[in-house]
Amino acid sequence: MARGLGAALVLAAAGMIGAVVARAYQDRPRVLRALQSALTMLRTEIVYAGTPLPEALAQVARRTPAPADSFFAAVANALNSRPGLTAAEAWREALANSPAWPLTADDEAVLLDLGGCLGRSDAADQEKHLGLALVQLARLQAEAEAERDVQVRLWRWLGVCAGGCLVLLLY
């Protein structure tokens, strides 16, 4: 009885670990897509509406879905609450204590490059940098989607099968 219970617990725990890892692979393309639409919104705000950066960032944060919005909100907050802070510094700080999103170092490097150019030059120049970041994010998203299709299935099965092997070894 106790053995069966333990076996079921080990199996369930291993399966859950696999599902958690698979979830990260599943979430990354979604977050990348949200970031792209957020940056597109930011570009519109900067180029066509001419909104000041803190305000534009706050608006973007309001209209972006869950994991990515806290990042823009953090940048906007830092810019609003601490005058004298440059946009690049605020951007880097928000990225450093990064929100709980499943992005890799590559994705964050693109954002970091973009942050260094924001709020420093005229709208046309910023539009170019935002366009570059968007292209890079689109490439990363295609990569992430290809990776997701393979890795999600692998990690689900890896968790369950590893749990089964562990149960058989310990039984």
């Binding site: 393979v150 890795q151 299935r153 692998l154 099965w157 890896l158 099968c161 590893a162 089964g164 092997c165 058989l168 070894l169 039984y171």
Partner: peptide, 26 residues
């Protein structure tokens, strides 16, 4: 007889995992 079941189970699980790892290019 449980030993035989254990060995068979390990074999099946590792065969499945092998297929998925090979599909993932590992």
């Amino acid at each position: 007889i449980t030993m035989i079941y254990q060995i068979a189970g390990i074999g099946i699980l590792i065969a499945i995992l092998n297929i998925f790892l090979a599909q993932a290019g590992r």
